[in-house]
Design a protein around this nucleic acid. Sequence first.
RNA 1: GCCCGGGUGGCGGAAUGGCAGACGCUGAGGACUUAAAAUCCUCCGGGGAUUUUUCCUCAUGUGGGUUCGACUCCCACCCCGGGCACCA
Length: 869
Amino acid sequence: MADYNPQEIEAKWQKRWAEARVFETEADSSKPKYYVLEMLPYPSGTMHMGHMRNYAIGDVVARVKRMRGFNVLHPMGWDAFGLPAENAAIKNNTHPRVWTNNNIAEFQRTLRRFGFSYDWRREISTCEPEYYRWNQWFFLRMLERGLAYRKKSRVNWCPKCCTVLANEQVVNGGYCWRHEDTLVESRELEQWFLKTTAYADQLVDDLKELEGSWPERVITMQRNWIGRSEGAKLKFVVADVKGAPPIEIFTTRIDTIYGATAIILAPAHPLVAKLLDDSPNRAEAESQLAQMKQSSVKTADLATAEKVGFFTGHHATNPFSGEKIPIWVGNFVLMEYGTGAIMAVPAHDERDFEFATKYNLPKPAVVTSSKPLSAETAGQPKDFRENAVGSEGAPPPVSERGSSDSRTSFSGAVEQPFTEYGLSTNSGAFSGLPSRIAIEKMTAFAEKKGFGRREIVFRLRDWGISRQRYWGTPIPVVYCPDHGLQPVPYEDLPVLLPPNPKLTGEGESPLAATPEFVKASCPKCGGPARRETDTMDTFVDSSWYFYRYCDPHNEKAPFDSVKVGYWFPIDQYIGGITHAILHLLYSRFWCKVMRDLGLVGHNEPISRLFTQGMVQKGGVAMSKSRGNVVGAIDMAEKYGADTGRLYTLFAAPPEKDLEWSEESIEGSWRFLNRVFRLVDKHAAAVRDSKDWNFDPKGMTDKERDLIRVTYQTMTRVTQDFEKRWHFNSAIAQIMELTNEIYLAEPLENGVRPEIRKEVLQILTLLLAPMTPHIAEEMWEMLGNTDGLSNAPWPILAGEQLELAKDNELEIPVQVNGRVRTTLKVPAGATEADVAAKAKADAAVARHVEGKRIVKQIYVPNKLLNLVVQ
RNA sequence: GCCCGGGUGGCGGAAUGGCAGACGCUGAGGACUUAAAAUCCUCCGGGGAUUUUUCCUCAUGUGGGUUCGACUCCCACCCCGGGCACCA
């Protein structure tokens, strides 16, 4: 009799796995491949159970697939560049590399302690020159293709990070993603960008390939983020300023143009200054503008902020109606989106409505609901067509608005903006057309007349990758006084980080303050040149790391395309919802760039994505800053890795948040002890037994019952693993099987050793993906000498299929949908058999008595329902 | 405001049209023990009737609907969580 000793067992098997190299893998075209990956961790301090859950889920998948005969790639590495390392280094007066490597060592020790089945030979660390040189290599390739460029622009600056942030890193309407209490400032800086917008269309369109295998909300979030909107750009001529260029506006609702009562410019619009030069109330307007520009820095409550604006004193001409409408400046118009100018249609846009109400602009209605006979439209004629003209029609006359148009109920003002599609009205020759058709015809008209064109506008902007910090990939370019910007030649890569930077966390970038780094020579003339001192956003590192796993030690290229061709795309990616936009969008972009460089042959890098829930304690996510973490190593020391793994899988389905409970984990610990005792008790008797031959002859009832429940459990557990990822209910089934075996004790009475062996082996195999150490140990105790990790997953075949079937069924009998009794009937009983037996049953008879059976519903082997009146 | 999730015992959760509450935690009782721990067994949604057995009834956020039958499908609403939010 041995006690379950997880510390001993777990160390023993981890050593054996490493010695036998069971998780090391190579491309092998004779086997189906399976690439399962958990998102690469940022190694920060100690690992807690929130991290652990992610890896536990991935490891179950990897182990199940391995047992099912797949060639499994399951690697791990480190997202090792980043600000926390630099900040910690400043604080402790050490080097970021020291802090980072200590953390990596700690994380690695923890992951090894949990026995995850990684191929550790493939481990990568993004802060190593062997890795980041390929960031630089990709950058140069993008530079050649015009996908990397430099421009001066307004950027998001986090005063705490002392660096710029990408748009994606600005959260909660204007705060830093790393410092949620810090407002992001707006600064004008010269920055490096990657042209994500060049792939905007593909990034939206290819989301279709992911439908059904990525979580719907991730797809929606990406689609919203890219924000493609189809509309038209139109030119409005400034009527009363000589030499002023026309104002270009973007609209998705060209059909509402007859209702435009103002042009509104963004405060930062280049034309504003010119218009004000010539403005009667120039001084006042300029002070308002200054105020507006200042307050627009605070983007925090932008959506709720009041709309303010002022009249420039000038007018523009509506190209459709010929009407002169005032040009305003408004704080709610964004320079970054569209053209930085809009036409305001108060009757059909909520924002314009609000603005017009405040400043008393007219709100003529030009679209009416097409829904028949609503209260508003009841009085309207049904056929608007008589007023409509084809696209060949002449430019429409200026519409006569107001009470003169007795054919509609609109009298020039609306109570509420009507923003839906409907029928055009008061729109000259386009009146009466459904909105969709009006949009088409009016766009065509504008194109024909040359004052507008069809246009697609994206919310997505280019990815700003410049960071003014040390601990990242240097951008490989130099600036020569004579030859300007020069890429570092490929053969000179990597551009190494200087080993001993001065890190202060203040002022300019640390690299700029390191003269030996800045000093360079021009690749063209050899003369003195200045090296670029920005480093890359760390999301560059994580955009392609999963390719490097396929070929981690390649010194000639980021990877061998043949190897990537074998492993890609990733079959299953697992990580938190927090990366729904940033990491996953950049990765998709990177993949498309690599495809166009001829490096990979697929459109999308990740076939299936799973976003697991968080581990919480006290109702909030575990995090160091909240101080509510349960350390993974502590867990392993107290209960062992298997108990920790089992509990995180059992306590909640993987997609849901999990509330950590110290009490509940005891249950998982008890269960493993219970299973271990069972195997231990029978090991001696079973170890040398021959395998069972599945011969049903001569089986005792006890044997049959035990085998039946075992096989049924096996089938259900397999389904939970493969089809539904319901690990919690898989574990529940295994617990139930264990309980059944206990109730059949003592097994020595009436259960032959070979049948006991069959039952206990299946129990062990079912547990193996989740609690691999104890399973290996029990597998060995049961007399197996080959390891469990590549043992075939148990599947019912031949005689076993018969043995799994119930020979007696319990059929609930309902009367009018309420269960009145359950009947035991032999398997294969017909409807007539069941009905006859039911009607003879006293409990049923009580409810049927005196009534007429009007209907009888029988679901074979499931249920009988008698409908009575 | 818009778009996703979700709402089931004291708790985590199970059941995706067919016996609601599997499995686990907590709690109660029993067995073993000198005793304790560990272990093993039994019970554990509410109300009522009957009294060691069993039966009835209510109950899956609320109100309707579809169906022989609804936690599950449809409609409306309430609450909780998350995402997006002047994107023209």
